[in-house]
Simulated scan of single mutants.
Amino acid sequence: MRYFFINKPYGCLSQFSAVEGKKTLADYFKVPRDVYPVGRLDHDSEGLLLLTNDKTLNHRLLDPGFAHEREYWVQVDGAITGEAIAQLQSGVIINIDGKAHHTLPCRAMVFETAPPVPDRDPPIRFRKEIPSPWIRMILTEGKNRQVRRMTAKAGFPTLRLIRYRIEQLELGKMQPGEIIELSENTICKKLFYDAH
């Protein structure tokens, strides 16, 4: 079994198969042919993504019954309020495939200073008169575009989204496009044993 974790760049699809006019994982990462991403990050999201040929790991990370932590660093449009943070923490109602979904309680907090993140290419639009603070959100569920839907519902749309951590596996100082191969023992320790 092979295990890789990557920092997926902005503007890259979470797949290896080619799509005309779009960059895919194959443009950045060389891995064995039977290795695939576990879950996905949207084209316009960045950060930690696991690649493996271990179907058991795939099941354990994607099955909602195993509710594992995912930490996101989110840059939002506007000076987010304490009321909006409380709303995110207690859960909001978002639309998933035409159905209302009440998100599970999560942890959300504002970064006092901007976190150390690599520059994005292209950068987000900059408007001097409107603040664009960063918040940290820690979720145990992963619905389609959930973080973006949640911040929009709270009144502060997402400008930039980075998945920083899955359980104890962190991006650290990895740059977009970097890849690290890990042993099965390390993956299990970081994702399952150290977490609970």
Rank of each mutant, 00 (worst) to 15 (best):
3 Y>T: 01
6 I>T: 06
6 I>D: 05
8 K>H: 08
9 P>W: 04
10 Y>V: 07
12 C>R: 07
16 F>V: 04
25 L>P: 08
25 L>V: 08
26 A>P: 05
27 D>H: 07
28 Y>M: 05
29 F>Q: 05
30 K>I: 14
35 V>R: 02
37 P>V: 09
38 V>F: 03
39 G>I: 06
40 R>T: 09
41 L>G: 11
42 D>Y: 09
44 D>P: 08
45 S>K: 06
48 L>R: 05
49 L>Y: 07
52 T>L: 04
53 N>E: 04
58 N>A: 07
59 H>P: 00
59 H>G: 02
64 P>D: 05
65 G>C: 00
68 H>Q: 02
76 V>M: 05
76 V>K: 00
82 G>V: 04
87 Q>N: 11
93 I>A: 10
95 N>K: 08
98 G>L: 05
99 K>L: 06
101 H>P: 02
101 H>Q: 13
105 P>W: 02
106 C>P: 12
113 T>L: 11
114 A>C: 00
118 P>F: 02
120 R>M: 04
121 D>R: 06
121 D>L: 12
123 P>M: 07
127 R>Y: 12
128 K>L: 14
128 K>F: 13
131 P>G: 01
135 I>N: 13
136 R>N: 09
139 L>G: 00
140 T>A: 04
146 Q>I: 08
147 V>I: 15
152 A>D: 12
153 K>C: 13
154 A>Q: 03
157 P>C: 09
158 T>Y: 10
158 T>Q: 10
159 L>Y: 08
164 Y>S: 07
166 I>L: 14
171 L>D: 02
175 Q>N: 01
175 Q>K: 08
175 Q>F: 00
177 G>H: 01
179 I>W: 01
184 E>A: 14
184 E>V: 02
186 T>A: 12
186 T>Q: 12
188 C>T: 13
188 C>D: 14
193 Y>T: 15
